[in-house]
Design a protein around this nucleic acid. Structure first.
Lengths: 205, 205
DNA sequence: GTGTTATCGAACAACTTGTTTGATTATATT
DNA sequence: AATATAATCAAACAAGTTGTTCGATAACAC
C-alpha cells in the first residue's frame, strides 16, 4: 500500500477516534474529521464512502485484531507490538509467527474471555475512550457480532432450562455488559477476576 | 392543554415513531418528521427544541407509562385504556383510580418483571417497531435508567460473590437484553415464562 | 528519470438546521 | 355570538453539511 494512502488512512482513523471520545457519533461532522486529520476533503472521500463506512471499517480493524490473529492495520497506537498480540482463535500461533503473549494453555471459556479482556486492555488508548463515550452503542453492536460466534462454540457447556436462542442472547449480552462495566471502571479489576465474575453469574446449576 | 397543541404533539410523536421503525435515528431529518406529521416547520420547533429533545420526551412518555402509574399523554394508541394500565410501583392503585389489570398480588421480583413485560406488550404498536429497529439502543439506554432503579431495590435478594456494582450492572443489562430478545421474537413467549427464563439465568446459588 | 497515483484546495449543487416574519385560523371566555 | 388569546402555517433566511468534480501539485514505485 502506498505510504501516502497509509498516512491519510491512519490520520483519519486517529482523528475519528479522538473525536468519538469527546462527541457523540451523530454529532461529528465529516468536516471535523477532515480538519482534525488535516487531510483534503476529496482525500477523505477517496478513502471512505461515508462516515458510516468509516465507523464500520474502524470496528472491523479493532475487533479483528482482538478476536483473531490478524495484526491490526491502522488504529493501533503501537503498531510494532500488534503483530504479536493477536487472539489465537484455534490456540495456534498468533499472527506474525510468534506465540501470542496472552495465549493461555487451557482453552476454557473463562480463560478465553480473560484473554479477550487482556487484549482490550492492551489497546487501551484506542478503545477505552470510545467505549466510555456516548457513542459506545455502535461499537458494542459490532462487538456483539464477534461475541456471538465465540459463545456459539461454547453453548454446549451450558445447561440451563431455557431456549437455546435465549441462552445465547443472554451470554453475549451479559459479557458485552461486563466489558462495558469493566472499561467504565477503568479496567481496575484484573481480566482474570473479571472473567471469573462473569462466569459466577452465568454458571448453570 | 389546547386541543391544537395536543394534536400537533401527537402527530409529531406518531410520525417520529413510524419513521424510527424504518430508519436509523441519525438518518431521520426534522424535515421528514415535519412532512410525515404534516405540521408547519415553526410548529415543530415551537414544541421541541431539537430532535434529541423529541426523543427524550418520547422516551419519558413511554417509560413513565410503563414503570409508574402515570397515564401516558401522547404516544399510546388507545388513550382511553391508558388510565388503567399504569404500573403500580408500590402495589397500590394505578393511575386513574382503578386497579391495574396487570397488578399482581405478590410483589416478588419475578412477578414484577412479568408485569413490566405485560405493559410492554400492551403498548405493542408504539414500541415494538422501535425496539426492533436499528435505533433501539437509544431506547434501551433510557429504559436502563428505569431498570436501574428497580433492580437496586431488589439487590439484597441476590447473593453472588461479586462486587455490588458489577451485580447491579449485570442484572440491568441482562433484563434489558431479555426484553430486546423477547420483542425481537415477536413476544411469543408469555411474559411470565420470559421472566422465569430471566430468573433462571440470574438466580444466585 | 519517468510514468503513475494520491493529495490538495476550491468550487459546486443540494440539502439540513433553527429562526423569524406576518397572516390565518382554532380555541377558550364572557 | 363577539372578542381576546394563542397556535398554526408558509415562506424566506443564514449558516452549515454532504458528496462530487476538477486541474494543479507533489510523492511514490519501478
Amino acid at each position: 500500500m502506498d505510504r501516502r494512502q497509509m498516512k491519510s488512512r491512519t490520520a483519519i482513523f486517529r482523528a475519528f477516534s479522538t473525536l468519538l471520545e469527546k462527541k457523540r457519533y451523530e454529532h461529528i461532522t465529516v468536516q471535523e474529521i477532515i480538519d482534525a486529520a488535516d487531510v483534503g476533503r476529496s482525500t477523505f472521500y477517496a478513502h471512505f464512502e461515508t462516515k458510516d463506512m468509516l465507523l464500520k471499517e474502524m470496528c472491523s480493524d479493532i475487533f479483528d485484531h482482538i478476536f483473531t490473529g490478524n495484526p491490526c492495520k491502522n488504529t493501533c497506537a503501537r503498531r510494532n507490538e500488534c503483530d504479536r498480540v493477536g487472539f489465537c482463535d484455534n490456540n495456534i500461533e498468533c499472527g506474525g509467527g510468534a506465540l501470542c503473549k496472552y495465549e493461555t494453555e487451557t482453552p476454557e471459556l473463562e480463560a478465553k474471555l480473560a484473554h479477550i479482556l487482556w487484549h482490550l486492555k492492551d489497546s487501551k488508548s484506542d478503545i477505552v475512550g470510545i467505549l466510555t463515550s456516548e457513542s459506545s452503542d455502535l461499537f458494542m453492536n459490532y462487538l456483539r457480532e464477534y461475541l456471538l460466534k465465540l459463545f456459539r462454540m461454547y453453548l454446549p457447556d451450558f445447561h440451563a432450562d431455557v431456549p437455546e436462542a435465549f441462552l445465547l442472547n443472554h451470554l453475549v449480552g451479559s459479557f458485552a455488559d461486563t466489558i462495558k462495566w469493566w472499561v467504565k471502571e477503568n479496567m481496575e479489576t484484573s481480566p482474570e477476576q473479571t472473567a471469573k465474575y462473569f462466569m459466577e453469574m452465568t454458571e448453570t446449576h
